[in-house]
Design a binder for these strands. Structure first.
Lengths: 337, 337
DNA sequence: TTGTAGGCGTTATCAC
DNA sequence: GTGATAACGCCTACAA
């Protein structure tokens, strides 16, 4: 802790360091970055000056000269549920390892998303975009700028990479499992038009039923939220031919359905089976515990991060499409044993 | 969609726009920013050139010239639990409204946190730092750089602003509530040394007991996690004079304790009361439902964002200390009725 | 081994 | 109204 005389209180520049060390700024730069030969004695003088002045190179100056931000972006709809938070975490970890900062952008309830994404694109070397945030045109826009993009939970757009989780096999296994328990009147809760994931789950669910000679009927459409799930279930339960099982597009919907069942005095799983998707924390705590499907959330983010890195560094140029495996988690709410 | 000839595929500059519009870069800048007089006809020519070339000003160039990043940072320990995610969300919202991007930095399991925070400081106009991430020295370091800092869930450091949530009154009310039910052997689960919040909660808890002539004993120390809570409770439950109530420093600990009780065949709340803190999603779903304390998480982030904005713009210079109110949420796990 | 000078893409201050 | 031109802070050929 020595007394210092920062030129302007804010921002010591490479020029000040150079003057203090009695060398040119080029030498300072070389000494600091090891990008060229520097005499040992000179290096020491520079390092001392750097220490004394507490010099920290300006990111802006560096980025401008190097023509790179050393930063990545990520666009997601929300951060409330555990789903996105986990993915972001996995992403941030990989990015940090690669020496890149992470800029986030939530699109929750925003109008000018396209503009915000464009703005973000101007601050990063590449970005990850979640399904259900911006439309294809906006994505193409970014790609046209030359900024690499990795899409998560979304079908391909242009040359962007994609990282998705497996839905079909698991949804089939889940449906088969319920059918094997003798359940016949199965209803899907969720809106296939809201996301690719929901669409694929519904599709596999419907196909599985058809294979067993059962009509899949129509999905009971609702958005991904507890309240929506509760409403949807509430409409279904008083029916004469009440469903024997509710296959929900995600855990939040399932939790809402569970509440609706409880409110209607219907015992789960005895008189009604309910399943979810994602294996969020509450799935383990709710009673009965929720049968669901686990997705490698953090890994999803990590993969996206690595894919993006390859795109940015140019290590790869053709688009990659990854599909991560998921796992059926049988618990109490589907009436097993 | 017209055919274009971007100079280098990436990055149209203001020079190209100027040439195309037949004016100087100064005029282009003025026309775009409205920072000076520009003839109507000239403005139109510029705008057309901008549109044709799809010109987007370089963030880097702008920031360098304006000497501002138009970006804020936030440092948090983790994003797994709902706590931090919510705060980050509230923060991002406010930042976005102010036209600032948000850079995140998770310190979870990292060694060189101080260095990473310094790096972050070089990319933003100000930052929010959570308790339990970096030490005071590092915070002072950032402040010395001239970068405004707002601390969340943490005692003041230097001139940094702070935003905290109320702990004492609520912890007192909670403890009194349990005592009013006739419970006497209360034990605190959590480690007061891990965070100011935990310390304040423990302190108020202990004081309340003392006021009733009861010895508070020692807190059963454990970190903020389900597993740690389970372990701590497990050690406590077999005791001869088994506790009648476990007051946990947060919901995750409480959930772990709940599991331990169930495993030990102890009925909650009949034979053991358990309370948490935070009111995370699972608190509503677990059985029995968890008595806890609700904190305005999103508001916490929003307040921090606004405080930071004032610091950055210079609208305020003296440090502010805010304490947000919390709310006791009585549910099933404490044996009311 | 070191220094000079040009470039990265803006903004803003002056003259004109 | 408009246009040079000097910052802004750094990197890096190219010379010396």
């Amino acid at each position: 802790m020595e007394a210092l005389t920062p030129d302007s209180g804010r921002g010591v520049t490479i020029y000040q360091v150079a003057r203090r060390a009695g060398v040119s700024i080029a030498t300072v730069s070389r000494a600091l970055r090891g990008s060229g030969p520097v005499a040992e004695r000179t290096r020491q003088r520079v390092e001392q000056a750097v220490a004394e002045l507490r010099f920290v190179p300006s990111r802006l100056g560096r980025s401008l000269a190097e023509r790179r931000h050393a930063a990545n972006g990520i666009v997601f709809p929300d951060l409330s549920g555990p789903y996105y938070a986990e993915v972001v975490l996995g992403y941030e970890e990989v990015a940090a390892e690669a020496g890149r900062s992470v800029l986030i952008l939530s699109t929750r309830g925003r109008r000018d998303v396209a503009a915000m994404v464009r703005e973000l694109a101007g601050r990063v070397d590449g970005m990850v975009i979640f399904g259900r945030t911006v439309d294809d045109a906006a994505v193409s826009d970014i790609l046209a700028t030359g900024v690499p993009v990795v899409l998560i939970a979304r079908p391909p757009v242009g040359t962007a990479d994609t990282v998705n989780t497996e839905n079909t096999a698991t949804a089939t296994a889940l449906t088969d499992h319920l059918l094997a328990h003798g359940l016949r009147r199965l209803v899907f809760l969720g809106d296939p038009t809201l996301s690719t994931d929901a669409a694929e789950r519904w599709q596999a669910f419907a196909d599985a039923l058809r294979r067993h000679g059962l009509p899949p009927g129509e999905p009971s459409r609702c958005e991904f939220s507890e309240e929506a799930g509760r409403e949807a279930a509430r409409r279904l339960l008083p029916t004469v031919d009440r469903p024997e099982a509710l296959v929900c597009a995600d855990d939040e919907i399932a939790l809402g359905a569970l509440t609706a069942a409880e409110e209607a005095g219907i015992r789960v799983p005895d008189h009604l089976a309910i399943t979810g998707w994602d294996d969020i924390m509450s799935a383990r705590h709710v009673r009965p515990t929720l049968t669901t499907v686990r997705q490698p959330m953090r890994e999803l983010g990590a993969r996206a991060g690595r894919a993006l890195d390859q795109l940015i560094t140019g290590a790869r140029t053709e688009p990659h499409r990854q599909v991560l495996p998921t796992e059926l988690v049988i618990r109490g709410s589907c009436g097993t044993h």
